[in-house]
């Protein structure tokens, strides 16, 4: 069991990780909006825009709808924020040396990402809005469709550790450590090159988790159901939700980079962080391009894609890991 000193150290690192995640997410959110604007031949918002939006929301009036359940309506944004903050601490910034007795267990990460989505579902239902209910139902459907490919693709690197030679482990730090070195020729030893199909499945799942088209904005489809689960939210509570959603730019890209793109490639301290952030940014840019270039699909399409194509990709890779070819 950890001592008090360990706890203080971990909490320090927690705040450091939150700070890193916040500033990266701010930048990435700006890149996301600016790039999508530029791809549409627009000029796009200035760099302070993501944070100005959130500050403005905190400056608005506080309010609770009449039909809402007061407790759950107030609690769910806090839970969303809390879950995503823990996620941004649990996913190390590209380095296998991350403190504490807290296991960076991939299953725990999976559960906390579900908890993050769950907060939106409860929010949609607790707010008493018809649009919120429809959005929440869609969010549940999205959790269902994404979950299986996501879980398989998340666990494939940790299952593959045994083949790389470092022994089985569910810990994300071991996955990062296992990806150092060279695969063949000049290709680095990333799981992306070992299991490309699984990485595609994970990428699509994370794309959906971070509210990007073609599937991600089904629960909050503006043109159909206003803002989905967040329809009845406004003011500071919406600000907390927006803040929590800002962190998705860090959390879900960092997860992909750590698992399939080798994290910081085992470099020394400032360099590995830099390499890691650059990789994250590249993922954000790719996600943005896909987001801008695609239209929103129907929910049945999402089911079809995730439970056939993505699942097939993931299962194929799983068989490769288990059988070993």
């Amino acid at each position: 069991m950890a001592t008090l000193f360990d706890y203080l150290l971990i909490i320090t690192f927690y705040f450091a990780a939150i700070g890193l995640a916040f500033f990266f997410s701010w930048g990435a959110a700006w890149v996301f909006r600016k790039l999508s604007a530029r791809l549409q031949a627009r000029k796009g918002p200035p760099a302070y825009q993501p944070i100005a939006d959130i500050i403005k929301l905190f400056g608005k009036e506080r309010f609770i709808p009449r039909l809402a359940n007061k407790f759950l309506y107030t609690l769910s944004p806090l839970v969303a924020l809390s879950a995503i903050l823990i996620l941004s601490f649990m996913i190390p910034p590209g380095t296998p040396f991350w403190p504490g007795p807290l296991a960076f267990d991939l299953i725990v990460i999976l559960y906390f990402s579900v908890m993050f989505s769950l907060a939106f579902v409860i929010a949609g239902w607790a707010s008493g809005s018809p649009w919120g209910k429809i959005g929440a139902s869609r969010e549940v459907a999205m959790i269902l469709s994404v979950e299986l490919p996501l879980a398989i693709a998340l666990l494939i690197p940790s299952l593959a550790l045994a083949r790389v030679g470092s022994g089985f482990s569910l810990s994300i730090t071991d996955v990062i450590a296992a990806q150092e070195g060279i695969f063949i020729w000049f290709l680095p030893n990333w799981f992306l090159f070992h299991y490309p199909l699984a990485s595609v499945a994970l990428f699509l799942a994370l794309l959906t988790k971070s509210w990007m088209r073609p599937f991600g904005d089904i629960p909050e489809a503006e043109q159909e159901i206003f803002a989905g689960p967040l329809t009845e939210y406004g003011g500071p509570l919406l600000g907390i939700f927006e803040l929590a959603r800002l962190f998705r730019f860090y959390v879900f890209t960092a997860l992909f980079v750590d698992l399939y793109l080798g994290g910081g490639d085992g470099l020394i301290f400032p360099l590995n962080l830099l390499v890691f952030l650059v990789k994250c940014l590249v993922i954000v840019i790719i996600m943005t391009i896909i987001h801008v270039a695609s239209a929103r699909y129907r929910i049945s399409h999402a089911f079809k894609w995730f439970l056939t194509v993505c699942l097939a990709f993931a299962v194929f890779s799983l068989i490769r890991v288990l059988v070993g070819f």
Partner: peptide, 30 residues
């Protein structure tokens, strides 16, 4: 793997407190 649930709970509550403070700060309009 040692899963320190007490720590996990602590961090979760820290997150909730951060959120609650952000919610309670008096910036709002009348």
């Amino acid at each position: 793997v040692s899963l320190d649930l007490f720590l996990l709970g602590t961090l979760l509550i820290i997150g909730l407190i951060i959120g609650y403070l952000l919610y309670r700060i008096k910036w709002g309009a009348t």
